[in-house]
């Protein structure tokens, strides 16, 4: 592989990287906004939880399980009409955000649930003994105590989002997956295949590093 080929591929690769990061970034925001509260609610509405409400818990758990059991590629296709309705006409980067979020929200919510359940019951007890209400227990105790584990869960979710985003490339979402497929697989241009791989590996490494560092910084256990 020579340098000339690579430099010719560069604009395409840069654009694809930008698209991937945009897709993943937007999906991540949606996932945090919807998945975090969902995870907390699922963790606390169970038996003996601070917000105990078992029918709601059952219902949300059921919905999450449906989302989790759907292979991404099928979810993506199944959601096309819904996506069109939300973002209008074409799919593209914005269109990819919908199935990406749909896949990541239940995944992240489960990880948040695990993190919140790990918070020792004694802390909830202490806050209640101090006159704390249910909501303040969630906001002042559960969330901050679970935060390091939630950050790690978010990191894992983002890494999954990156791999999903590559699949989203196949339905015209663009991004690194699209480039690898189109140039690398169909046209057998190895330099594209190889470069997209390297770029994805680097992105994943950086995200994992930042996530682990952040979780460590926040954890004082």
């Amino acid at each position: 592989m020579n340098f000339d080929l690579l430099s010719r591929a560069l604009p395409t690769l840069l654009e694809a990287t930008r698209d991937t990061l945009t897709m993943v970034g937007l999906a991540m925001l949606v996932t945090i906004v919807l998945g975090l509260p969902l995870g907390i609610v699922v963790a606390t509405t169970g038996k003996g939880g601070v917000l105990q409400c078992r029918p709601l818990n059952w219902l949300l758990g059921f919905i999450i399980n449906i989302g989790r059991s759907m292979p991404f590629i099928i979810l993506m296709v199944a959601l096309i009409p819904f996506t069109r309705f939300l973002v209008g006409g074409s799919l593209g980067v914005k269109g990819a955000v919908v199935p990406l979020s749909a896949a990541a929200i239940p995944f992240f919510a489960r990880l948040v649930e695990i993190a919140v359940r790990e918070v020792p019951n004694g802390l909830i007890e202490a806050a209640r003994s101090l006159g704390g209400g249910r909501l303040s227990v969630c906001v002042k105790v559960l969330l901050p105590e679970a935060l390091p584990a939630i950050i790690l869960g978010l990191t894992t979710t983002i890494v999954s989002l990156i791999s999903y985003s590559a699949m989203a490339g196949t339905i015209g979402a663009g991004g690194l997956g699209d480039v690898a497929l189109r140039y690398g697989y169909q046209q057998y241009k190895l330099e594209y295949m190889f470069s997209t791989l390297v770029i994805i590996v680097i992105i994943v490494q950086i995200i994992q590093m930042v996530g682990s560092w952040g979780a460590n910084r926040l954890s004082h256990r």
Binding site: A126, P144, E145, L147
Partner: peptide, 24 residues
């Protein structure tokens, strides 16, 4: 419940395993 929360503030409690928030 709301008045009970108020009343609990008159009753301090300490625990075997301290139950302090590790994040604070």
């Amino acid at each position: 419940e709301s008045r009970l929360r108020q009343a609990r503030r008159n009753i301090g409690m300490i625990f075997q395993h301290f139950n302090l928030l590790s994040s604070r």
